[in-house]
Amino acid sequence: MFDLADDGFATRRQTALFDDLLALFLAEGFSHLTLDDIAARLRCSKSTLYTLAGSKDELVRRVTIHFFKRATNAIEAILEQTRSERIAAYLIAVGEELAVASDVFMADLNAFAPAREVYEANTRAAAQRVRELIEEGVGNGAYRQVHASFAADLVATIMVRIQQREVRTATGLSDAEAYAELATLLTYGLRA
């Protein structure tokens, strides 16, 4: 996953509002909510929401960025503490971070282009991170000699299919479950 350099939050109150928005969206999705609904649920004014973003569309996009930034930071913290089976640890952590999202949120994310674009960019960055981990594992002898670019491309393909909800449609697996399965397949397939 990727790290968006700056959420652009100016105050603790704004950060807290983004956290509250994220919790609301993760639990219930966002497509059905109006700015009036959101303001009422967060017990703030619409003008307060407009300090966060100029429109509902931009607010959803920024909350999506906030979600993936938090996820990236949590995943990288786990990876820093992991010395073996790093690809599995990474992909399982990705799955765990996605597991907090309701099906409604994931469907809304996929249906709303600005949020989907954030997820797509995050998926590309995650695939690049997996490539780095494959190269690292091959380099230190943990993984057999494989063509890292090919393996990373293969992983990127399935990650995109997960993100686009194709894996869910084909298998019934949630995004989190699909990442756990991918971690298992990759780990055993790459071992030296």
Rank of each mutant, 00 (worst) to 15 (best):
A27G: 08
S55W: 09
T34Q: 01
S31P: 04
K69D: 15
R116S: 01
A111G: 06
E58V: 12
I134E: 02
A88W: 00
E132D: 05
E76G: 10
R129L: 10
D103K: 13
R43I: 07
G54R: 15
V60M: 00
S31L: 12
E85S: 10
D103Y: 14
A115W: 01
Q81D: 14
N122Y: 07
A113R: 02
R129F: 02
A101T: 04
E76S: 14
A93C: 07
I78P: 09
K69T: 15
L59I: 04
E97G: 12
E96N: 06
R83K: 09
A99E: 10
F67S: 14
A53E: 09
V118E: 00
K56V: 11
V130R: 05
K69Q: 13
N73H: 13
Q81R: 14
I134N: 04
R43N: 13
I87M: 06
E85Q: 10
Q81C: 12
S55L: 12
L109V: 03
I92M: 06
A125R: 12
S45V: 12
I78H: 15
D37L: 04
A99K: 11
V118T: 03
L59Y: 07
T51W: 04
E120Q: 10
L52S: 03
S31K: 14
V60D: 01
E120D: 12
I87F: 03
L49P: 06
T123S: 03
M106G: 03
A101L: 06
A93N: 08
D36V: 15
A88F: 00
A53T: 11
A71D: 02
A40F: 09
L79C: 13
E85W: 14
S55D: 15
R131A: 04
Y50P: 01
